[in-house]
């Protein structure tokens, strides 16, 4: 990794972060390279969302350095597409899908005429790219969990970002929909670096390229494997992978001793 000549997409060095004096992330070092498809796993409260918010520039680290495309996160934000957790969205706001995606075109605050014809054209393209072109005139409140996820993805894609950060994108989607969604992300991954926070380990393991385990400390695994050691380190309890029926899955390789542990 360190011998790589290109600038990493995400470069975090010696980063620590605390909420109200309780340490959430401790001495994090993490490099994500171009075209990676990284899964972020870990227990609830382990710091996954905090890590995401630091990368987006929504939080500033107490210690250490964070660079996205070689720049401070806030400066890099035009190159970052983001979908927050589904619970962040207030569905009592009456809004068409097209309007929701247009939000992705916004820059800074204020203005009498906010959206140009080319913004609307980009919205159409993003909706098509996300397979949601038929939903353009629907109301966000009418969408199913899976449809809403596609629309939020379109909103993240509308500015043609080079990095996609998705926080639990399939939390309200059935397993069929999850698998389709990750197939779709895999296609996008030809052009875009992807970082996805998820609990859907079975679906993840057949699509991703690397794993980021977050539980106060952060461990990077440069292979698409989720081993039982990683699970128990990340979730503090032995986890059994159980599956029924024709769910795509793979047998995972045994975990090797981790030299940065």
């Amino acid at each position: 990794m360190k011998s790589s000549t290109t600038t990493p997409v995400i470069d975090i060095q010696n980063l620590s972060f605390a909420y109200h004096h309780s340490l959430v992330l401790e001495n994090v070092n993490l490099q994500i390279q171009e075209r990676d498809f990284a899964a972020v796993i870990g227990p609830n409260g382990g710091g996954k969302t905090t890590l995401v918010k630091l990368i987006l520039g929504l939080l500033t680290p107490d210690q250490g350095k964070i660079r996205v495309f070689g720049r401070p996160p806030r400066e890099a934000s035009p190159d970052i597409g983001y979908t927050p957790q589904d619970t962040e969205i207030n569905s009592s706001v009456p809004m068409s899908t097209e309007q929701a995606v247009l939000m992705g075109c916004m820059r800074g605050g204020g203005g009498w005429r906010r959206f140009s014809a080319s913004d609307r054209e980009m919205v159409r393209e993003a909706l098509t790219q996300a397979g949601a072109e038929k939903l353009a005139t629907k109301q966000v409140a009418e969408l199913s969990g899976g449809q809403r996820q596609r629309v939020m993805l379109a909103r993240a894609l509308v500015t043609r970002p080079r990095l996609l950060v998705l926080d639990e994108p399939t939390a309200n989607v059935d397993s069929q929909g999850q698998s389709e969604f990750f197939d779709f992300l895999q296609k996008l991954n030809d052009q875009v670096t992807i970082m996805v926070v998820s609990h859907d380990l079975m679906v993840l393991s057949s699509h991703i390229k690397s794993v980021v385990c977050v539980s106060k400390q952060v461990h990077f695994h440069d292979r698409p494997e989720i081993t039982s050691e990683m699970l128990s380190a990340a979730y503090h309890c032995p986890v059994e992978l159980v599956t029924h029926g024709p769910v795509p899955h793979r047998v995972l390789a045994a975990h090797e001793p981790d030299d940065n542990a």
Partner: peptide, 18 residues
Amino acid sequence: HDFVALSFDPEFARVRGI
């Protein structure tokens, strides 16, 4: 549009520099 974005999804709005 900023007030609407703030009402709909404040986290995303912040990422867009609002």
